[in-house]
Simulated assay, not measured.
Amino acid sequence: MKLKNTLGVVIGSLLASSSLSVLAQGQGAVEVEAFGKRSFTESNRDVTNGNLFGAGVGYYLTDDVSLNLSHGVYESIEADLLPGGSNEKDIDGTLSTVEALYHFGTPGAQSLRPYVSAGVGHQELDNTRTRGQDKTTFAMVGAGAKYYFTEMFFAKAGVDVMHSLDTENTEWQAGVGVGLNFGGSTQQVAQVEAAPEPMPEPMPVEEPAEVVRVELDVKFDFDKAQVKEESYGDIKSLADFMNQYPQTNTTVEGHSDSVGTDAYNQGLSEKRAEAVREVLVNQYGVEGQRVNSAGYGETRPVADNATDSGRAINRRVEAQVEAETN
């Protein structure tokens, strides 16, 4: 039979090509497929529903649009030779189509690409009761999806609605198929082996600068601005750091608790800041222009002034210095 010969050629091509790795999708690609469909006819045509088996070929005008040709042979379709279906006979028939398909999604392996289609088809049925030979031209629209297991091999399922331009009948078909996609711009680009680029000259790697930081917190007795002996060690550590990094500067900030008037506490905080500055400059040798002092009175508490312990924490001088090291 013609059908068996056609399917044999298509299936043989699929098997022979399945081991090729150069197949690809894209503009300029060619697809071949084998399909089977169930055809549902209008009752007034005096023919039964049947199966359509065939093959097709498509050419991709772009990555998404293809032009497809197909030819199929009807099987298991019968015609009523007498009214009422009292005498039935197997008939021969073919359907040839030309369709344009628009694919959604991205080409590639393991990708699902839904599509819509539109085109025309020509059907010929022999030995029908109504005409002897029944020839019909269809306008066709359809939708479906293809799943690409690899760049080349895909399975397909879809539905086509066919409207006869001769008899105004509307019929439809549902089917599945398998196929191969090969050629195309994607494959051509993949086959061009890019020349290796010259290795760039290694650039010297700069180690990121590390930031080092020293903080000072000197506590004072109530209503006093004298630096306590126990605080000299911390002040010396700050001075040593500044002498090690001569680009650094600092501001020592004096604070008080809330006991007393605002004006009195402001003056007391300034005296405390100046006392620490004098130790840094006069005793430990930090240049005077690198050390500033400022008083903030009771405006910046860090603890609760309602308690003795909180007020003791607030009677303080703070300073901080940071520098970058390589």
Rank of each mutant, 00 (worst) to 15 (best):
R213E: 10
M199P: 00
E197Y: 00
Q25V: 09
A190I: 03
G132M: 10
V189N: 04
G288L: 04
V120F: 15
T167N: 13
T170V: 05
K89V: 11
A306H: 13
A303D: 14
I77M: 15
A24S: 14
L280T: 02
E324M: 09
E287W: 02
F222K: 05
A195Y: 03
G93K: 12
R272M: 00
S39A: 14
S309C: 04
Q110P: 00
K89P: 02
R315I: 02
W172P: 05
K219M: 01
T251N: 04
V259S: 10
L216K: 07
V65Y: 13
D240F: 06
A139F: 08
Q25T: 09
V302T: 15
N326M: 12
Q320M: 09
G105P: 06
L165R: 11
S39W: 14
L14P: 00
A55Q: 03
V159D: 02
A263L: 08
F53A: 13
G28A: 03
T150G: 07
A24F: 08
V227E: 04
E318T: 15
V211I: 10
L15V: 15
R131Y: 15
S269N: 07
E42V: 07
N305T: 06
R300I: 05
M203F: 01
E230C: 00
L81P: 01
A323C: 06
G12L: 07
Y284C: 03
A319E: 02
L7W: 00
Y296F: 11
Q187E: 11
Y74V: 03
A312G: 10
A194G: 05
E206Q: 11
E197Q: 06
R45P: 08
K219G: 10
S17M: 14
K37Y: 11
D234I: 04
E298V: 01
A109K: 09
T250N: 02
V211R: 06
V120Y: 12
L20A: 13
D126T: 13
Y245T: 05
D262E: 12
E210A: 09
A157Y: 06
G121M: 10
R45C: 08
N169Q: 14
G297M: 02
S66M: 12
F53R: 07
Y296K: 07
S13W: 02
G288T: 07
N51C: 05
T130N: 14
V321Y: 00
K271P: 01
L125P: 02
H103M: 08
E171Y: 13
T6M: 15
V10E: 07
F149C: 09
D166S: 13
N5F: 12
S70F: 03
G288W: 01
D221S: 09
A294D: 11
F149S: 15
